[in-house]
Design a protein around this nucleic acid. Structure first.
Length: 284
DNA sequence: TATCAGGGTCGTT
DNA sequence: AACGACCCTGAT
């Protein structure tokens, strides 16, 4: 991988195992919209960025080398060898091989943790179009220039005002999260270097955060790539493909994933999730 | 028009 | 450990 400037734009070349559509559409983030074939606008890290992929190269519109180095190189996990990851998790596993072949360009983003936390609190028992809408209106109403609001910007927002954003019963959870983070009772920065079981319990101090939401935050924003978030789709796909259609308990699936994929379980989860969501199951 | 499920979690039994 | 409630919307 290398990069060069093309006027005001930056072009990353020689990308492998990278597909911007699969990365954005695989359900790990919510603030993006499609402009064209392999062309997207995303909002992250306090910035709106337009991206277009052509083959193995990715153009970042209006982006300098310093911004690329300090933000996007890490955000898109560009320095990780996904070829090796895919090879390891799908070894002697025709099911995972199929999932990996189906969307071989998935990468796990390194998102901002507080945004990831609030976003996945909103995601619970909810559908994706609505999740996106709620996050967009939160950003429009309380963020600056359409960015996701900072904790400071959310500090004086009441549960009633949050309810007005149509997030329903999750309003008290968002309120609780914002204030536990602001007070320092829960410190996301410390969770990165903590053992993941310990970090998960820290996150679960926040109302509305259970195993699933906590695991998404650990996986998508805190570098804990060994966790395996289990939602209805992952439960469905693992039960159907690995357990002959017999619906398994969350604990059984969790143990299965840890034993099978170890510290790469998080990657495995994302390939399976996308595979299942894209209509590769008999049910759903 | 009605009904169900949606990237779950909480409070109660 | 099991079970219903929860705001609202998209899908059928």
């Amino acid at each position: 991988m290398n990069y060069y400037m093309d006027g005001k734009d930056l072009v990353v070349d020689g990308l492998r195992d990278f597909n911007i559509e699969e990365i954005l559409e695989c359900g790990q983030c919510f603030r993006f919209f499609k402009l064209g074939d392999l062309k997207y606008s995303i909002r992250a890290l306090g910035r709106e960025l337009t991206l277009e992929q052509t083959g193995n190269s990715l153009k970042l519109f209006n982006c300098g080398a310093e911004e690329f180095e300090t933000k996007w190189r890490h955000y898109f996990d560009m320095d990780r060898d996904y070829g090796a990851i895919k090879e390891k998790i799908s070894r002697n596993d025709s099911i995972m091989s199929a999932a990996v072949d189906y969307a071989g360009g998935i990468r796990l983003l390194n998102q901002e943790s507080y945004e990831c936390l609030l976003s996945f609190i909103i995601s619970q028992n909810n559908n994706i179009p609505r999740i996106k809408g709620i996050i967009a209106s939160m950003s429009e109403v309380y963020g600056s220039e359409g960015n996701f609001p900072t904790l400071k910007e959310l500090e004086n927002v009441t549960p009633e005002e949050l309810f007005a954003l149509k997030m329903g019963f999750r309003n008290k959870y968002i309120y609780d999260a914002v204030h536990r983070l602001l007070s320092g009772e829960v410190s996301l920065d410390k969770l990165e270097d903590m053992p993941c079981n310990e970090a998960r319990e820290e996150l679960k101090k926040i109302k509305g955060v259970g195993n699933k939401v906590a695991d998404c935050v650990l996986l998508f924003s805190l570098g804990h790539r060994e966790v395996f978030p289990i939602d209805v789709w992952v439960r469905r796909v693992v039960s159907e493909l690995y357990f002959d259609g017999q619906e398994q308990s969350l604990n059984t699936i969790s143990d299965f994933a840890r034993d099978k994929w170890g510290d790469l379980a998080g990657y495995a989860q994302q390939y399976l999730f996308y595979y299942a969501r894209s209509g590769n199951l008999t049910k759903g």
